[in-house]
Design a protein around this nucleic acid. Structure first.
Lengths: 213, 213
DNA sequence: GCAAAAGTGTTATCCGTACACCCATGG
DNA sequence: CCATGGGTGTACGGATAACACTTTTGC
């Protein structure tokens, strides 16, 4: 039996969050788990991950990447299940969380305040975090975490939050602009009690290798 | 149904090789494939990969790393099989290839002269090559390709072969020695018609992150 | 006018890269 | 003595890293 589990990340209020689902059935009743489920026999693992993302969390069209396959023999108390784990990134703007009858709840948790997790899901989250952190440094996948329009400070905050490091503003901007990662728009933010910031969009929203840090 | 396939790499005569097995049963009769097979229900994917490595190629105690899980619905004409692919590295010294009744032959093929491959195995080999090339640059996994004792020129040749690039000898040595990746032995090569070379061993034979190139 | 975030340049240091000759051995 | 690979240092240029003040807005 083969299944898939998806670690969904999002940056909210300068904290990295994961989306979890609260389980109803024992022995995990009340515990939280990654959204996921079986891979049908006429379905690719990628398609199954997308499907569960949509069914269990109402998310479509997100960044999605295969992570690792977890196969400990006893990882599922109901029997042998090998799980192909995925990582997904979503912009903080998408909040339309959908909950289903099957589960007790759906909720975002900050990475540093996770509840008790079912199965080997904390192991999956560790692996996903590791992958996210390293890919931030050599690809443009941050685009998955930001809305279509954003400021350079938003972008820098995403990096700082995930990498748990402070970055010099001037050096960061020079680097990002020099790489042509983003293109400026003719718009600025408005309404905040401070100087308006120029808005940018990503030059491309396809995964690309770029040396960022 | 879930299986595993292993792309086994080795550097021989300054060329990167993959180990392939010739199939007997149709529709792939005569074609070549990666060693692999089913994952038993009481076995982890890692253990299954190790087992097939031993059974089909007589190799034990090699570098082994999970690569990616391939799940195209039609990848196996006998029915739905999802395959957890692995990459393995072996030193050029280990040549004790073992062949079994099940297959028509076992043979090393240079990466640039591969025969017709069964299933989606050429896709797996591409992915493995990509992983190997990138990990050479930021980890110490070359150790999997070299014998316990080797010269700096051996090490450099391994890099040049796999990355398909010429590397400056002085810069390479400075870098490698500066990183403390290898430790010198009190021995030198002998018997060749040129100046003997100092032998080295790896400081550690566990996977470690190090910026090499 | 004050608080809050945006925006902007210069300098020192480190790292990568380019480059050529002498040395030790076997035959 | 010759062919073969082993072994070694230096100088330049580009990238990274450190660092502080002015600007624009809302209240």
């Amino acid at each position: 039996v083969i299944a898939t589990d998806v670690a969904i990340f999002s940056v909210q209020n300068s904290a990295l969050h994961v989306l979890l689902i609260q389980m109803k059935k024992s022995p995990f009743s009340g515990m939280w788990a990654l959204p996921g489920g079986l891979i049908h026999s006429n379905e690719t693992p990628d398609a199954a991950a997308k499907r569960h993302l949509a069914e269990k969390a109402g998310l479509t069209n997100t960044y999605l990447e295969q992570l690792y396959t977890f196969g400990r023999v006893d990882r599922d108390p109901f029997g042998r299940v090998v799980s192909v784990a995925y990582m997904s990134l979503i912009p903080s703007s998408k909040f339309n969380l959908k909950t289903t009858q099957e589960y007790a709840g759906v909720q975002w948790f900050p990475i540093f305040a996770l509840p008790k997790l079912a199965y080997d899901h904390s192991e999956i989250i560790s692996k996903a975090l590791e992958r996210l952190r390293s890919k931030l440094e050599y690809t443009n996948i941050v685009y998955g975490l930001l809305p279509r329009e954003f400021t350079l400070s938003d972008l820098q905050r995403a990096y700082e939050t995930i990498l748990m490091a402070e970055i010099d503003k001037r050096n960061f901007r020079r680097k990002i602009l020099g790489l042509g990662l983003v293109t400026p728009l003719r718009k600025k933010t408005a309404g905040s009690a401070n100087r308006p910031a120029r808005l940018f969009k990503f030059a491309t929203r396809k995964p690309t290798f770029v040396n960022i840090l």
